[in-house]
Design a protein around this nucleic acid. Structure first.
Lengths: 403, 403
DNA sequence: CCGACTTGATTCGGTGATCGAAGAAAGTGG
DNA sequence: CCACTTTCTTCGATCACCGAATCAAGTCGG
């Protein structure tokens, strides 16, 4: 199943936005929605009715009065998981199920060996999603309450409506195919969407992991900002771009892939792509591990590196600073060029203070004053669920639009 | 008069697009428009009627039959200039009047001394536009014509509907104010829009010159492409960004300003901004002139430099190559990040072969294969009218939208 | 405990943009 | 001269949205 680009038209008061307002608690009643969306009460009522009929929204009794008639409270049905999400990482994958509002219902982190190849890895993860989404009764992991058996017809909650998948490498979003990934041996050219479509019979949406983080973070924290850039600095380095409120994928769907931009580095380290001085070879988690080992510091993985940095190890801290500068250099070009309202950094390296500080400094030094004068430079809310949240939003946008 | 952001909503078959199709000759009849826009014949007829009533379109007899009823030909009225445009450059300004289809009616190039300050420069240029737009009969140059008794209805052709102005420096588009320009002494903080609004009583739209070039080039040559980047390399260096078919200005309106991005250069030259190694200090026309003079080559201006390069002068050519590499380096980051369908270079340096060749090479070397695999790298159609064309489109979008 | 005022939600035309079908206008070609 | 094209208009039907009136269900002051 090939998915074309999904969320094109105006969200302005569209069903998705109403849903999100209810989900986030920004709106509780029809009147709230009317005020927020600017739509007339009648229109909102009508829209809400169709959402309720679709099983995407439900009425949950009356709320507290504010001096007049009590509002009829609205909520997103909690009748079970409805959207599946997989956020594949270098060593671990976060899988989960989320309700149609984008809230995580169940989430699990599984160890993953990328080198086992796509069939095996994706097969296992898909099975896990299916298990999570299956009528709970059985395992009772989180005791998913079945609240009032699926009342009505075909659109009852609890059905899996789609699966969003994030891949730590370049993905041609339109086709769902992986293209020349750096650190995913055996995955080149693999058609993720087609493979998954053969296993489960729901819409599959595949995207780059940084894009998912960007979407998740934007919808969660910056939904009112038009232009945003999110950097994901973990084992690898990627970025996701929000332009005019929407995920910018570019011509080939490879927008945001800054991992092989060249930066100045003292001994320019060789990158897995064959070039020297790639951002990824200087500033990624994998690069830090390699560099430390080369200096004779015994460190096993990124966690170890971060621990060293937190402990104030000289070598590790120096490397982190260099990494921050490198990211800042590239980001400076991006900020000048794109002039976003916010730049946020996520991933495991985002909690690394020296790196962040160097990045900020470089950014302020190298950017046009006009571009930084109101620029927010933030950390992405540190949560392991950002990725699957973004994945879910992608699926929800697709599903609700199609409804 | 402050102009807010203009062209927000769908152009899909909007009045502007119909107008443009007729103007470009892509459509001659209502039936053509219907086929092109996908709108139903009835809708098109209705829209065309209102456009005719507004004086933006007219019927010009019948065309040739294609086996059935002859089409009633449509055209943009040629009743005189209707939109003014000013493309201010470092040493010259191109001013002109264009009809509502974006075709140049009259164009003139005037020498300009930026250092005379905004009042004097803009005052003279505005007067020139007014003269061009005035009912032709009188030659009088100054004579800010009171656009006199509007002949027929309020919407007759021949009336000046607005003026678009391009500035070779950072412009806060929302306010029309200039912010810390490099090479415009005495212009910092000047409110162009307000100044002009005090002189003429039509909408004034101010933007960066690179943005105007981008808009002009995109509408002229790439209107079917969603994402495009245009580089303007002349005395200075700037760029304009088209995202999802629309001009991307970013948070502060400074998007595309890559002139002070740092690049590696052997003796990193000092930039007018005080930093060293800015792209503008390495690759702009002004930088080439300075560098050649420092090498003892007597050269007066950019024209001289280009002549030297064309003549195969070693020093000049080497500098051009270095400039091309520098632009390519920055552009590589931009292409990886933004993943456009096309990158086009304009400005006077665009005709410089060695520069272009180096830029292309660098781009292909440094970019993700996925990003360059279908990327078009072109020269912007070399015309002195690209800038004012873009300016006119900006005004037309604004005017037709308001109608 | 009763009315005046508030707030929340629905009902019911009304408007504007668009579509589709039908038909009128104006040709071409055998 | 008749069949068939192409172009354009006319005329409801539909859809989304709005606004005003109305209904529903409170609070609150006296």
């Amino acid at each position: 199943m090939t998915i074309d680009d999904a969320p094109r038209e105006a969200l302005r008061g569209g069903p998705r936005e109403l849903l999100r307002w209810v989900a986030t608690g920004a709106a509780v009643s029809r009147a709230d929605l009317s005020r927020l969306s600017g739509l007339s009460p009648s229109t909102v009522s009508q829209r809400v009715e169709t959402l309720i009929n679709q099983g995407l929204l439900e009425e949950t009794g009356a709320g507290r009065s504010r001096g007049g008639r009590r509002p009829r409270q609205l909520a997103v049905p909690t009748g079970g998981a409805v959207v599946g999400a997989i956020d594949l990482g270098a060593h671990h994958a976060r899988v989960g199920t989320l309700d149609l509002s984008g809230r995580v219902v169940q989430g699990r982190t599984l160890p993953v060996r990328i080198e086992d190849g796509p069939e095996q890895v994706l097969g296992a993860l898909l099975a896990e999603v299916a298990a999570l989404a299956a009528p709970s009764a059985s395992t009772a992991s989180g005791l998913v309450s079945s609240p009032t058996a699926s009342t009505t017809a075909d659109n009852a909650a609890g059905v899996l409506r789609g699966i969003g998948i994030g891949i730590p490498g370049p993905v041609q979003h339109a086709t769902g195919r992986i293209v020349s990934p750096s650190r995913m041996p055996g995955w080149n050219g693999f058609d993720v969407a087609a493979f998954c479509a053969g296993r489960v019979d729901v819409p599959i949406i595949v995207d780059n992991d940084a894009n998912l983080m960007a979407l998740g973070a934007h919808r969660t924290a910056h939904s009112e900002l038009d232009h945003a850039v999110y950097i994901k600095a973990g084992t690898g380095i990627g970025s996701g771009v929000i332009s005019s409120g929407r995920l910018h994928r570019g011509a080939q769907g490879s927008a945001g892939d800054i991992s092989h931009c060249r930066v100045v580095a003292d001994p320019a380290p060789l990158c897995s792509c064959g070039n020297a001085g790639c951002l990824e070879a200087v500033a990624s988690g994998a690069a830090l591990v390699t560099a430390l080992r080369d200096q004779g510091v015994p460190v096993s993985d990124l966690t170890g590196v971060i621990r060293l940095i937190d402990d104030g190890d000289r070598h590790a801290t120096a490397l982190a600073r260099q990494a921050g500068r490198a990211i800042g250099e590239i980001l400076a070009v991006v900020v000048n060029f794109f002039n976003p309202q916010v730049v946020a950094i996520g991933g495991r390296l985002a909690d690394c203070e020296p790196l962040l500080a160097s990045m900020r400094a470089t950014l302020y030094e190298r950017c046009l004053p006009l571009a930084t004068q109101t620029l927010l430079i933030e950390r992405v809310a540190t949560s392991q669920d950002i990725g699957i949240t973004g994945a879910a939003h992608l699926v929800i946008d697709h599903v609700v639009a199609a409804a």
